[in-house]
Design a protein around this nucleic acid. Sequence first.
DNA 1: ATGTCGTAACGTTTACGA
Length: 260
Amino acid sequence: MKIATFNINGIKARLQALTDWLEEARPDVALLQEIKSTDENFPAAHFEGLGYHVAAHGQKSFNGVAILSKPEMADIRRGLPGDEADEQARWIEATVQGAQGPLRICGLYLPNGNPVPGPKFDYKLAWMDRLHDRAQELLAAEAPALMAGDYNVIPQDKDARNPEAWTDDALAQPESRAAFRRILNLGFTDAVRACHPRADIYTFWDYQAGAWNRDHGIRIDHVLLTPQAADRLTDCGIDRDLRGGDKPSDHVPVWVELDI
DNA sequence: ATGTCGTAACGTTTACGA
C-alpha cells in the first residue's frame, strides 16, 4: 500500500497539479495539508471521480487537512484531542484495511510557530505536547499506524541546506526539535531517514529568493511509523520534481510503501 | 527588492499567514 503526504498550499490553486500527480503517482492514500477550504467547498466529487473516498477537516481560508483513500475509511476522527477550545483544523485520522490487516492513518499540519517568541510559538509547543499524548496512545495499541504530514520541524541541521538561515525560525528552535525527538523516541521510525540516510533530502523550498533554483530546501514533511508499521516498510521517496512543475506548491509529496 | 504565493474582502488593493 502506497501512502503519501502532500502539503498542497490551497486546493483551489492546486487542483490541476494535484490531479496530475495523483494520476501519475497513484497513491492508495493521500494525506493533504493546507487545503485552505471549508468541508463544503472541498471538491470531494472530483476526487471520487478519480476513485478516492474523501474525508476532509477544513476551515475558511487557512489550515485544513484531508484524506483521499482508495480503500474505504472507517472510524474517521477529526481534530487533535486534548484541547476542546482549539478551532484550528490540523488533524484527521482514519483506519483503512490492507490485504493483511488494518492500518491506522493520521494526517497532520503542525503549527508553524513564527515569530519566536510569542503566542504562536507557545501554541506550537502546546500542540506538540498533545501530539505526544496521541502518539503514545497509538503505540500502546501495538498495531500498524502512521502519523504523516507537515511537521514544520527541521529535525537536525543536516535537514537544511543552509541551517544558519533558520537559527531564529520556529522550525529549527531547540524546543521544537526536542519536542519532535521526544515523540520520535517513544518508538517511531522516521521513514524517510530509514530509507535515505544521506543529508541532502528536502521537502520544502520557499517561493522567495530563488530557493528552488538554488536548492535551498528543508526537510519538514515527515512520515512516522509505529514499530508494527515500520516492520512492513519496503520503500519510500520524495517526488521533488513537482517543485519544478507548473503552479507548484512550496512542498512536494513524501510517500512510503508498506507491505500490508 | 523586506525578493513569492494563496486566500478573502469594505476588492482593481490591502492584510494576513506562511
